[in-house]
Nucleic acid binder design. Sequence first.
DNA 1: ACGCAACTTGCATGTCGTGCAATCATGTAA
DNA 2: TTACATGATTGCACGACATGCAAGTTGCGT
Lengths: 204, 204
Amino acid sequence: MIGNTPKPEHGRERRKRATRRALRAATLELGLERGLPEVSVEEIAAAAGVSTRTFFNYFASKEDAALLEMLAVPAADLAAFAAGGTGRNAWADLTRLFAEDMDRIGQDGPDLPRYMALHERHPELQWRQLARFARFEAEVASAIAARLGDDPVGQVRADVMAGSCITAVRVGLRHWGLTGWEGPARAHVEAAFAMLAPAFRERA
Amino acid sequence: MIGNTPKPEHGRERRKRATRRALRAATLELGLERGLPEVSVEEIAAAAGVSTRTFFNYFASKEDAALLEMLAVPAADLAAFAAGGTGRNAWADLTRLFAEDMDRIGQDGPDLPRYMALHERHPELQWRQLARFARFEAEVASAIAARLGDDPVGQVRADVMAGSCITAVRVGLRHWGLTGWEGPARAHVEAAFAMLAPAFRERA
DNA sequence: ACGCAACTTGCATGTCGTGCAATCATGTAA
DNA sequence: TTACATGATTGCACGACATGCAAGTTGCGT
C-alpha cells in the first residue's frame, strides 16, 4: 500500500478519494521505476491494496491513472467570456482564463514534477493529456466565435485561437518543468500566451 | 520529395503494398459502417483476405490502420531551414515547409474525405494522427532554436513556434474538410499559418 | 531446378477491459 | 441497537488485443 489513509473511518466519499489517490500514486511510483508499459494493472492494484477489478472501477486504463487531474475552465467563466465586454481584448481574457486554471494545478500537489517526468518518458501520455485538456477546445472555440463573430473566416480564426491556447498551456507547463518548477506555473503559461498575443490584436 | 523509388511495379513489393491498401480500405469501410470500436481486427483481416496475424505484421493496431499516411517534413529540408537564410522570415519558411508537406496528402487519394469522416466520428483518431505528425515537433523546435538563437527565452519562443505549426496544420486540415475539400489542402493550411504570422515577425 | 530470403500463418501466451452477480461495508431510519 | 438500503468491492467469465516463435509457403535470383 503506497498511499495511506489517515482517516479511513469517516465517510464513504473520503475513502473513495483515498483509493483513487492510492491508485494514482502506485501508478506513478511503478511507472517511474520500471516504465509504464512494463507495469501491469494487476501490480498497480496490488500496490494500492485493491483488486484488479476495482482499479477499472476508477480508471479505464493504466494510462488514465497516469494523467494529471487538472483543468476544466469553469463553464460559467467561459460563458462570461463569450458574452464578454467588447471593450476588453479577447486574447487577454483568454490568457487570464487559462492562467487562473493553472493555479488549480495544486491539486496534484508535490507529485506534479514526477508526473511531468513520467510524461517526458512516455510521450504518448502527453498527447493523451492534451486530448483530455482539449475537450474544452471545441467549447473554447465556440465561445470565441460567439464573441468575435462566426462568419466563415471568424470560425477559422476562433479555432486558431483555441488551438493557440492549447499550445501556450503546453509550452508554458513544459518550460516550467525544464526550469525546475521555479515560481508559479501561471507565470510561464502567461509568458507563452504573451508571445502569441500579437497575432490576436483586436482590429477595428 | 527526395529520391524515392516507386519502381518495383512488379514483384513482392507490389503485393505488399496491395495488402496494405486492402487492410486500410477494409478498416475504413467497416469503421464507417459500424464504428471502429465495434469492428474487430479479425473482421478487418478477413475482409482483406489475410489472417489476423498478418494484420499485425502491417499495423500495430486497428487505429493505426485508420490514420492518414502523411509524410514527414524531410530532414534535409529541416536542416536547410535551420541554417536558413537570415534574410528570409522564419515563419514564412515554416509555412512553406509544412504547406509543401500538405501536397503529399494526395497519397491517400480519393479516400481522404472518408478518412476525415472517420476521424470526425472518432476524435481519438485525430489526436493519434496529430501525435504521429508531431513527432517532428521537437525537431522543428530545435531547428527553429538553431536558427533564431537558443537562449532561454529563445527556447520558449521556438517551442511556441513549433506548437503553432501543429495548430495551423490541424485547423487548416479541419476546415478544409468542413468546407467540402474545396481546392488544395495547402491553401487552408496556409491561411491558418497566415493568421499566426503577426506573432512571429522578425525583430531587429 | 535449387536454395535462399521474405512473407504468411497458426499456436501459445499474457494483458486489457467489461458485464454480471454475489458479497461486504457503511450510513440511515425505525 | 437493530434492520435495512445503498453503493462499493470483488471474483469470474469472456472476448479482444498484441506479440513471440516456429513451421509452412511463395517468389526471386543463380
